[in-house]
Computed example of a mutant assay.
Amino acid sequence: MNLQELLQEFNPSNFVVYTCLLLFSILFAFRLDGTITISYWLVFMPLWIWKCLVILGAVIGSLVWIKNPEYRLSESSYIHFKSMLISLSLQLLLLMFELLVCDKLESGRHMWILAFIPLIFISLLSTAICIWAFKNDRAFELEVFCAVNVLQFVFIALRLDRFINWSWVVVFVPFWIVMCLAIIAVLYALIFAAILLRTPEVAIEQRKASIHSAISYSLVVIPLLIFLVLLSNKLDTTSDYAFPPLRPTLLHAPIIDHIRPSYFTICIPLYFAFLILICLSFNSKGNNQWWFGMRKDFCSFLLSVCPCLREYGNISFNKQNNSLSSPHGSQSAIESDQVSAGNPATGSSEKSRFKMNHKKIMMPIMTLESPD
């Protein structure tokens, strides 16, 4: 394992986003369960940290762009900077949505549909942004998520305001459609990886990449589907003020009414999916180089800021040779000697192999006669 290669494929943006979402989901579940009674403004603290980092990084990147006009000559640099500004605008709209949601949970002085207006606006803009990002080879995970779930956001807002009295299983129909498409994509990735695995003409690196992507998608999609099923059942049987109980239907069996797991238990598959996404951020390229004015990949920036890491960045670890560098290497060598000593045939074969590999090269003696 090489530290430099690991950092070269590290995406700090994805790492920060998924880590903040993981912390927020844990705090929010504890708050809904009543385990903690802190204010929702503190529960949303990981999201505030995320948005502060985005704003600070965009401001520093813009200042570097303004002070250095020579950086504008490169077309790729211009695309990166434009992508940063687009991402900043979406993050500001998302921040407005989070502020309205937090204020609604604290005071309840406005309707949910008002809080969801910035998110719906993001979803409408995301379609055009996805087209631009696809043409310029930029990442657009957040934009795709918002674009395909615009109808879902409308349904959730209407359900929370009690304009519709549908079951949450019905409200989540757009999510079910998206998850079905995701499962189909996972099955396709698994089948494609199995085909490549049995094709000898394909390179080994390509096989490993296909298997890695198929397993990664499976570990993300399946926990999200389990979480969505548990959440819909929880919301249909809860008596919370924000999610009022519905009339008894065939979906609500009497046995399930008294079995109400906590929100933290329901969110365990979601936490697992976030952990997988955090691990995948170490093997995810495509980071914007203009955040905080770095103008280079994260590995080069980190090594330039911390020169002490350069010594460790040049060290690689090989599993096959770890016995030479580990403190147990001498012990393993001693054990192998003991085994060879206990088995005469093995010892003689080792000695003969050693002699064969270390035979002296015999050359005829040639004398050089010099004239008198």
Score class of each variant (00 low, 15 high):
residue 147 A to S: 10
residue 133 A to Y: 10
residue 147 A to K: 03
residue 137 D to M: 06
residue 105 L to E: 01
residue 132 W to H: 01
residue 102 C to N: 06
residue 113 I to P: 02
residue 111 M to Y: 15
residue 107 S to D: 12
residue 112 W to T: 09
residue 143 E to W: 14
residue 103 D to E: 14
residue 105 L to Q: 00
residue 113 I to V: 13
residue 140 F to N: 11
residue 143 E to Y: 15
residue 135 K to D: 10
residue 115 A to K: 05
residue 115 A to L: 05
residue 125 L to V: 04
residue 135 K to I: 15
residue 122 I to D: 06
residue 133 A to L: 02
residue 104 K to G: 07
residue 118 P to W: 08
residue 112 W to D: 00
residue 103 D to Y: 09
residue 114 L to N: 13
residue 147 A to V: 08
residue 108 G to S: 08
residue 102 C to H: 06
residue 127 T to A: 07
residue 105 L to S: 03
residue 126 S to N: 03
residue 123 S to G: 15
residue 119 L to Y: 00
residue 113 I to M: 00
residue 126 S to A: 14
residue 107 S to W: 15
residue 104 K to L: 15
residue 131 I to V: 07
residue 110 H to Q: 13
residue 146 C to S: 14
residue 123 S to N: 06
residue 121 F to N: 02
residue 122 I to R: 02
residue 127 T to G: 13
residue 147 A to I: 07
residue 108 G to K: 05
residue 131 I to S: 09
residue 104 K to E: 03
residue 114 L to Q: 14
residue 107 S to I: 15
residue 125 L to Y: 01
residue 125 L to S: 02
residue 107 S to H: 15
residue 138 R to G: 02
residue 140 F to Y: 14
residue 145 F to C: 10
residue 136 N to S: 03
residue 141 E to G: 08
residue 108 G to D: 10
residue 139 A to K: 13
residue 129 I to N: 00
residue 119 L to R: 03
residue 137 D to S: 06
residue 126 S to W: 07
residue 145 F to N: 08
residue 141 E to N: 10
residue 147 A to M: 09
residue 104 K to N: 12
residue 136 N to A: 04
residue 101 V to M: 04
residue 109 R to M: 05
residue 117 I to S: 10
residue 134 F to I: 04
residue 105 L to M: 07
residue 108 G to A: 05
residue 145 F to V: 13
residue 124 L to H: 13
residue 110 H to M: 12
residue 123 S to K: 07
residue 111 M to G: 12
residue 137 D to F: 10
residue 115 A to N: 00
residue 146 C to E: 03
residue 107 S to F: 15
residue 144 V to I: 11
residue 111 M to L: 14
